[in-house]
């Protein structure tokens, strides 16, 4: 009986020590989380402590990143140079922000089922229907993540394939397939996203080409974009003088809508042009 009591006492003592250790460990974890700003309880209650200078001055804000960046956090305009290797072991660097042409970067992998259709499409470049001069570059992850032989087997002859995990990081690619269109004239990304079929991507490229053409309308030679600058100002002056409007004319300083459009009863379809009326 005495021996049983002694054994029981020893067991109780051991359990007590164990529970105390667990509680201490739990307390240390909670304290560490609290210092990182992720503790339980009301952090507002510690504002007085946070005002105290020193290394233990309240919760610290720690950036926590999990998974791909959110849309609002992405740098969706930069177009850094991509550098890596080809499936055959050569080295390749592409600077899409240079050269003036459109560059379509296709981020693909060998394992994703939805990428298979794109690999197959790239075997028929004449059917891609990309605007003339558009450069297509397929970007896979580097040799440490992809098997070069498998990439080479999928890549069509003559297709530019770059293997670089850094490029996926630089362009913040959330997954494959993913497409990025870079305008070499502005040096910026002008489009990016996912697609199920390549014709959707080609349509994106065509729209970007049209937009770029419209944007550069004023700089294209031979286009009649009308007069501009000092010549435009001189033409305006001539129009005003012909209408009898000279410097200081009251019509140049409207104070109400009536000054612009005339009395309400006169704002009919047949109402004279305000400039002519003023003259």
């Amino acid at each position: 009986m005495i021996a049983l009591t002694v054994v029981l006492g020893v067991v109780v003592a051991l359990v007590t020590v164990l529970v105390a250790g667990l509680l201490r460990s739990h307390a240390d974890i909670l304290k560490a989380l609290h210092d990182l700003g992720a503790g339980v309880g009301d952090p507002v209650g510690d504002t007085t402590a946070s005002s105290t200078p020193g290394p233990s001055a309240g919760p610290q804000s720690v950036p926590l990143t999990m998974g791909p960046a959110l849309a609002a956090d992405r740098d969706s305009t930069s177009a850094p140079t991509l550098a890596g290797v080809t499936p055959t072991g050569d080295a390749l660097a592409v600077a899409p922000a240079r050269g003036g042409a459109l560059t379509l970067l296709a981020f693909l992998s060998t394992g994703c089922a939805s990428c298979a259709g794109f690999w197959e499409s790239f075997r028929r470049p004449e059917q891609l229907d990309l605007p003339v001069g558009t450069r297509l570059v397929v970007v896979t992850k580097g040799p440490e993540r992809e098997i070069p032989g498998e990439v080479a087997a999928l890549a069509a002859p003559g297709l530019s394939v770059l293997m670089s995990s850094d490029a996926w990081t630089d362009y913040e690619v959330p997954g494959s397939p993913f497409f990025v269109l870079v305008d070499g004239t502005s040096g910026r990304r002008v489009g990016e996203g996912v697609a199920n079929q390549f014709r959707q991507v080609a349509e994106l490229v065509r729209r970007a080409e049209v937009d770029a053409a419209a944007f550069t309308l004023g700089t294209r030679p031979g286009r009649d974009v009308g007069i501009d600058g000092p010549a435009r100002e001189s033409a305006n002056d001539r129009e005003l003088l012909d209408a009898g409007i000279r410097p200081g004319d009251p019509s140049l300083y409207p104070t109400s809508l009536d000054d612009l459009y005339g009395p309400p009863d006169a704002r009919m379809p047949a109402a004279p042009h305000p400039m002519r009326r003023a003259g």
Partner: peptide
């Protein structure tokens, strides 16, 4: 590669 250059070694 300096800024603005691209290249290939093959």
């Amino acid at each position: 590669l300096p800024s603005g250059f691209e290249g290939r070694i093959f």
